[in-house]
Design a protein around this nucleic acid. Sequence first.
DNA 1: ATCCAGGCAGATG
DNA 2: CATCTGCATGGA
Length: 268
Amino acid sequence: MTKFFVKNEYFSVEDTLTCGQVFRYKKLADDAWEVYSLDKRCVLKTLHDGVECETDDEQYFKDYFDLSFDYGKVVKKLQTFSELAVPIEFGKGIRILRQDIYETIISFIISANNNIKRIQGIIEKLCARYGSEMSGYYAFPTLAQLKTATVAELKELGLGYRAEYIYETARVLDGALQSLTTVTCDESARKVLLSLKGIGSKVADCIMLFGLRRFSSYPVDTWIFKANQTDELNTPQKVREFYSRRYGEYAGLAQQYIFHYTRNFLNK
DNA sequence: ATCCAGGCAGATG
DNA sequence: CATCTGCATGGA
């Protein structure tokens, strides 16, 4: 177990973990959080002058939190859009995580037409049932472990109709992951993702953004749609087109600020 | 009881 | 190409 300290104006542990990009985390105390990724764990304590991180795999989590990336410049760019001023101010410590692509794919298939609380519960059960036991927690199941699950078993976790999506996708995921490592442009990656059962436009965009670090993706879920909908932008696809063009290469980060702000203020 | 949640697949114009 | 419908589950 090693500790490292992060002094960074653009790193709020709470905002980063609770803005909907990751589901495996726990609040330990007012300023202490725990996050899990694959079979790893990191404990984060927010102190007066920065964040203290404790983990067995320091390099993994430095990469996971993308700590070498400078958000200052990006935030400055996005602040030129006046409608983003308040959302950015509210969630300016959000960082886009570099999550494992496989875990992201499975997690966001589960996320479809579901709410975050329930998504977290299902993933937790999935880990407890199929993942390896670590000291004090369960790892996310490997693909091989996941493939041992039957549809009926998966339904017992509360997956509903998504059980079949997980089952079917698990059968072909080795190949898909392989082609994802070889594709270059965003469009080809998107096509590979869309070919998988349970992945449509929105889930593909989430996976691109949170699992492949494609900052230009602009996922449109019910919250974003409510926030952006107008008489003209009256479908999710139109909202997606308009705002990904408007915000350009950092549309995904803009989307996170809007999502986080909308979900915390405009509704409960 | 109806609506909603980080929507998707399949069928039909 | 676009639009429509059914869908598991649990909390509000």
